[in-house]
């Protein structure tokens, strides 16, 4: 918490290579969506109206909240508050669980409506993009769970918190990607 400290990437450097690679993949996905939509505007606009935008909004708030919990977990461990850090981490994993539940509800609803990847181009993007992101949320939750267990065992302290920063950085990437995905797929007409 020094005001004058050396500038460095938070967490392990290797996670940043992974994060930048993930951003590149999602970026290509988003650009492909936008380019494909420009050739099928009516189809995309009509199909998009059938999405559950309230579920999308709830999940955005949930993911943002989980990211906020995670950054507080990092700040707590830097202040030497291990128990508090564990509680923030548990809260963020809980939020991740809510996200998965809401998303599952959306997937099941669409499945029951007979919508699949081959229904049309919009749904091909909607299902593949959101499922791809869904898998990243699961991976992020696994990472956070490992960190939580380590934190409970006292592996992190005010002077050693690289592990928590590493997991937190990955989780924020998952949040960042959703911040683009939500307006792109659910809202912009």
């Amino acid at each position: 918490m020094n005001s004058i400290s050396e500038k460095k990437l938070p967490g392990d450097f290797a996670i940043w290579i992974f994060i930048y690679a993930e951003l590149l993949v999602f970026g290509v996905f988003f650009a492909s969506y936008a380019v494909t939509r420009s050739n099928h505007i009516e189809l995309f606009n009509q199909s998009q109206l059938l999405l559950d935008r309230t579920a999308g909004m709830i999940n955005t708030v949930v993911l943002i909240t989980s990211s906020w919990f995670v950054v507080n977990a990092v700040h707590a461990i830097k202040a030497g508050k291990q128990n508090l850090s564990v509680r923030w981490l548990a809260g963020s994993i809980g939020m991740g669980g809510i996200f998965l539940g809401v998303k599952m509800f959306e997937f099941i609803t669409k499945h029951n409506e007979g919508i699949t990847l081959s229904t049309n181009k919009f749904y091909m993007f909607y299902l593949s993009l959101t499922f791809f992101h869904f898998m990243h949320v699961i991976l992020g939750m696994v990472i956070l769970a490992v960190i939580l267990v380590m934190a409970r065992r006292g592996k992190y302290s005010a002077t050693e918190y690289t592990g928590i920063e590493t997991g937190a950085s990955y989780w924020h990437m998952v949040d960042l990607v959703w911040i683009i995905l939500f307006p792109l797929v659910y809202l912009i007409q």
């Binding site: 400290s5 460095k8 990437l9 990211s67 906020w68 949040d175 960042l176």
Partner: peptide, 11 residues
């Protein structure tokens, strides 16, 4: 998110 959650302000 980039600046304050990912803490790129310190990177």
């Amino acid at each position: 998110v980039i600046t304050y959650f990912m803490e790129m302000v310190n990177a």
